[in-house]
Nucleic acid binder design. Sequence first.
DNA 1: TCGCTTGTTGATACTCGGTCTCAATAATAT
DNA 2: ATATTATTGAGACCGAGTATCAACAAGCGA
Lengths: 141, 141
Amino acid sequence: MDMLTLLRQRGHRITRPRLAVLQALAEGPAHISAAEVLSEGRRTHPGLSKASVYRTLQLLETLGALRGIPSPEGRSFVRVAPGHHHLLCQGCGEVRDFSGCGLCDSWREVADEERFFVAGHLLEVFGLCSGCRSKREGETS
Amino acid sequence: MDMLTLLRQRGHRITRPRLAVLQALAEGPAHISAAEVLSEGRRTHPGLSKASVYRTLQLLETLGALRGIPSPEGRSFVRVAPGHHHLLCQGCGEVRDFSGCGLCDSWREVADEERFFVAGHLLEVFGLCSGCRSKREGETS
DNA sequence: TCGCTTGTTGATACTCGGTCTCAATAATAT
DNA sequence: ATATTATTGAGACCGAGTATCAACAAGCGA
Ligand SMILES: [Zn+2]
Ligand SMILES: [Zn+2]
Ligand SMILES: [Zn+2]
Ligand SMILES: [Zn+2]
């Protein structure tokens, strides 16, 4: 669902800072940090404050529209899409879509076997894309 | 391999602070934070410094003996065991061993399909254990 | 359209996990 | 035992994220 509509439906006010954050999320990269949202959001609302960015991101996360992914380089946010993960290249930073992780298909089995109610899972795959891989073949590691 | 042996084999010195960290890791919980390692390690080496704890944890991570898992509650460290993940209960904090994630078995397939060299993957499953699940059945959420 | 109500904002102080610096220390090799 | 140098500990420092609070403005009803 549209984040804007989601906010409205849940009774949250549509404000200039929130619109700036939404636009930054819409136009920014798939993985975006709070700092990037701030600087990007200031292009459409120069007075945008750090606090508002964090508050809005947190709100969107509790509404289920966004998910914060903790990573070695700091937290980044991605639009939530169940069964949708990412391949993160450690060489060039490319983010490639990736779906069909085995766990997505076997949630119920895992839940039953372990008597565990699975609310969700966080999966990030690290490695090297083909380009970066070939670049490193000549290196003396 | 034994962490102590690993350190020695790679030419790192065996020092009192490092032994304190190793012991804290051995005796502490499966998921342990840097702060916990510090306070626990000070039981065997009172003068243990914050910096040494972080340095040692970082060293062990680069040696592949340890893995830092970023989580909403801050980073925690676990002993590395390939194909070994955890079910994290959001109710009571219980950590249950979990193995056989579909991805572990299909690394090569994914790598080939996507022409992506997979160096590793981060998987954390969140939910509720059976105890916490039944506790919440009577709640008016 | 015009005020009210109150959710929201922005500036700033603050917290705290983690890193940096550097002189002092101690683990290893000879 | 001595020299070499990796490592340490104390504290300054950094930066992401949070708490505070008076000022503001989105929405709503008159
Ligand atoms: Zn790449
Ligand atoms: Zn999945
Ligand atoms: Zn539980
Ligand atoms: Zn796995």
